[in-house]
Design a protein around this nucleic acid. Structure first.
Lengths: 333, 333
DNA sequence: GCCTGACTTTGCAACGATGCAACCCGCAGG
DNA sequence: CCTGCGGGTTGCATCGTTGCAAAGTCAGGC
């Protein structure tokens, strides 16, 4: 079995408590004692039992990150930043996937927020409204990532989706495009991501004097395949927008692929702009213009917010807005 | 504070132990008692304290997955499969990143294998040899993912990299290519991935009567940017292979991008085959041929192996070989 | 009416660590 | 010589749960 404090104490001829003091760097210890204990610690290769420590202290140092799917590039990159930053402040990250399914999201929340050893939860929800969440949130701190859903009493970190989308459209307009289509999600209340991006799209169109209720290609999810299908259908109908604003880079990738297959030149005939700026987009052909959220900023802000709430569960909640940037590449150059 | 067994016991007028029995579905409990306890449980909304339970039982139900970087698509997809399968068998997954840095890998192993609450570790190493690992592996079960490194006494799950690479080359040869270049990694002992893939490449070349020590473009990592740079340099030198076998799909994506920029047509002038078959490759232009490892199979096999070892720490170790498939798409069609 | 055995329920100890408060000690000050 | 003080060390209780073994209850068999 594992080496415990008691084993070390026996070997060093001191009490368990003293060994614990040495391990935790307590001040008032006689140098001789400390040395003896240190020696015993090393000889037995003692490692503290973190479970026991957690039980006593009531904290585990583990936070949970709930994402729709870790294999989606944007979430993978976000998870990377979270793990990276959390590790740097001594926190371990558990990952769970909701699949974007509201039922599973609720399940996860009820079990996590109350039952688990998790100190707090970072939750990137697709389907749940803030109100749902507020009710479910248990005793444990919860920070929402992504779109700001309905007014809630929860901490939230994200970018200004409406403004980002507006800027994307403005950019396309500035490049002389007028028949601009939006692509992705449902735009409905259940899908906050597309709801806000669609809203920003409309603002941009209106500002340019274009029809704000123009073409909107809806998709059941944000994956490449859905965009391919949607674009294929669009072209079959003979519709020819001169620009496409896709609500995720993966959607844009699917769109680019389909346009390529149909022999439509990008950006000459149709310009394309994505959202998320995943790594792959820099290398697609043509390279994809996109909205780049400050992922590292989101991760740091979110983890910090969670830690702050751990120390002060009652404090006022905040809405943290993180910067973004419109990156212009070939696909809309 | 949280509701404990004692709170419930008091409310229901039974002993703590009885409540525990009810919670754990123990058989012999009087229906009346069970009902009373159930009612109290629900009224107080009791949730077991998993930390305490773990302390008592010596198991946490958490496994750690160590990857170089979660934002690399292949690892993201693998992580997805692991989380998915682990969840289905009631296991939670923690993720940590090594950055592929041998020093950090060692650090993680020493701390994880001994100190943590983790029941076991799935380790996808880039830089460490099996021998290093064997020495470091602490008291906790450890299963290696990816390339089989030096002969070890550890469980290992992966595909036959040599054979996969051989088949990729054979495919290119069959399509009439003769000046085939390999791209990725160093081929050295420190980089098992490229070592085996390069070996398979050579076997394939030899079998076709081609120079087995032909062109090998080395890269410091497996990311898109490195391949772009390598291909750029290659073309500057005036070398013109007629096929490129890239040791990862991300490398292939970078290569495709650079070939596009330089106006080299794929597959007409140069055919390209990748390795990993990440989601994005189906949608690249042109769509990328690739070796598809059975990722779900790897995940399931690895988790199962870990669980088996938990029950029988002394059992014989295995080398699990998981199937793969060569997917042929436009880039080498 | 007593014994056996199955069914219920329980108290105690333990998992390994840390908070608390007390203890012992030597020394300076009165 | 006694008191007070602060450094060094300790025992005990505790975190919330479950394993163990025994105690209590009750019905059925002899």
């Amino acid at each position: 079995m594992a080496v415990t404090l008691r084993d070390v104490a026996e070997k060093a001829g001191v009490s368990v408590r003293t060994v614990s003091n040495v391990v935790n760097g307590f001040q008032h210890i006689a140098p001789a004692t400390r040395a003896r204990v240190q020696a015993a610690l090393e000889e037995l290769n003692y490692r503290p039992n973190l479970v026991a420590r957690s039980l006593r202290q009531g904290r585990t140092g583990i936070i949970m990150l709930v994402l729709p799917e870790i294999n989606v590039s944007y979430f993978g990159e976000l998870a990377h930043e979270v793990v990276d930053y959390a590790t740097s402040v001594g926190i371990t990250v558990q990952i769970d996937e909701s699949g974007g399914d509201p039922k599973r999201e609720k399940e996860l929340l009820t079990s996590l927020a109350q039952a688990s050893w998790v100190d707090g939860v970072l939750f990137s929800s697709l389907g749940l409204r803030g109100v749902d969440l507020a009710g479910l949130a248990g005793s444990r701190p919860l920070v929402l990532l992504g779109e700001r859903t309905a007014r809630t009493s929860l901490d939230h970190v994200g970018i200004d989706n409406v403004e980002a989308s507006r800027q994307a459209v403005a950019h396309l307009v500035e490049r002389g495009r007028t028949r601009i289509a939006a692509l992705g999600g449902s735009g409905g209340a259940r899908d906050a991501t597309s709801k806000y991006r669609w809203k920003g799209f409309q603002q941009g169109m209106r500002a340019a004097g274009l029809d704000p209720d123009g073409l909107y290609l809806r998709t059941p999810d944000y994956r490449r395949g859905s965009a391919s299908a949607a674009v294929k259908e669009l072209l079959q109908w003979g519709e020819r927008p001169d620009a496409l604003f896709c609500f995720s880079d993966e959607l844009a990738a699917g769109a680019l692929r389909e346009l390529y297959e149909q022999g439509v030149r990008v950006p000459d005939e149709i310009a394309v702009v994505g959202f998320d700026d995943i790594e792959a987009s820099r290398y697609s052909t043509p390279a994809l213009s996109s909205i780049r959220p400050d992922k590292a900023g989101i991760a740091k802000t979110a983890v910090d917010a969670l830690l702050r709430r751990l120390d002060d569960p009652q404090g006022e909640t905040h809405d943290y807005e993180v910067p973004f940037e419109l990156i212009i590449r070939e696909s809309s150059g």
